[in-house]
């Protein structure tokens, strides 16, 4: 489905039927879908320059399921002294069955995760909800699986683009705890506003995703498996 941006009139495309937010590529307005109506709810910051082979429209396959990248939020976190400690991108992947997942890209490493339902007695979900301090290398249980905590941080959005399940204006914050297991499995518990969500998936290499439609990078020879 395509429509005209209510702010600048440029065409905007909705590839997913279920996502409420799209950022206009042209004027960066954040547009919300309410039934047949489009509503302007703000302006998104541009994602800062980042060396990455990914781009919106790139396709791949995760655990045998084809996906396409349709949106991105760039997050950063700060050290105790207030300096930016690092940043990463969350690419929204739309799977062929209409479901979505997040492909996280941090320092050239990738993790694909999809939403899961935590169990009522998962302590980590309660602790994240209550804003408790979480240390690295703690053993935790989530949805019947054991993980170790990798890090726990509050992140702020610095830019966003494409289609998204939520608006991510610059400065929007999110608290997340990253979990890993011995098999390369990854999970995350996140608090966005008052809502706590749980995610699981795995660490992946770009190559294993059989990517297509990647960006070419100035001055670098694209590997043969990337296209």
């Amino acid at each position: 489905m395509t429509a005209d941006c209510p702010s600048c009139g440029a065409p905007i495309a909705f590839r997913s039927a279920g996502l409420p937010i799209v950022v206009c590529d042209f004027c960066r307005s954040t547009v919300m879908r309410r039934g047949p109506d489009l509503e302007l709810i703000g302006v998104s910051a541009r994602v800062p320059d980042t060396i990455t082979p990914l781009q919106i429209g790139a396709r791949g396959s995760f655990e045998g399921r084809a996906f396409e990248l349709i949106g991105r939020v760039r997050w950063q976190w700060r050290d105790d002294d207030g300096l930016v400690g690092g940043a990463w991108s969350e690419w929204l992947a739309l799977f062929a069955d209409g479901s979505t997942g997040w492909l996280a890209e941090a320092m050239g490493r990738y993790t694909m995760m999809t939403g899961i339902e935590p169990l009522p007695d998962d302590d980590i979900v309660r602790r994240v909800g209550a804003g408790e301090t979480i240390r690295p290398d703690m053993l935790v249980e989530l949805a019947d699986a054991s993980y170790r905590t990798i890090d726990a941080r509050t992140a702020e959005a610095v830019g966003s683009e494409g289609e998204l399940p939520f608006a991510a204006p610059a400065g929007e914050t999110l608290f997340g705890v990253d979990l890993a297991d011995a098999g390369g499995g990854r999970a995350s518990v996140q608090k966005h506003g008052d809502v706590v969500t749980a995610w699981h998936g795995s660490a992946v290499t770009l190559r294993a995703l059989q990517p297509r439609g990647l960006r070419r990078l100035d001055g670098w020879r694209q590997p043969g498996w990337a296209a």
């Binding site: 694209q222 590997p223 990337a226």
Partner: peptide, 8 residues
């Protein structure tokens, strides 16, 4: 060492 497709 860095490579944009492989990381560090």
């Amino acid at each position: 060492l860095f490579n944009p497709w492989e990381g560090y």
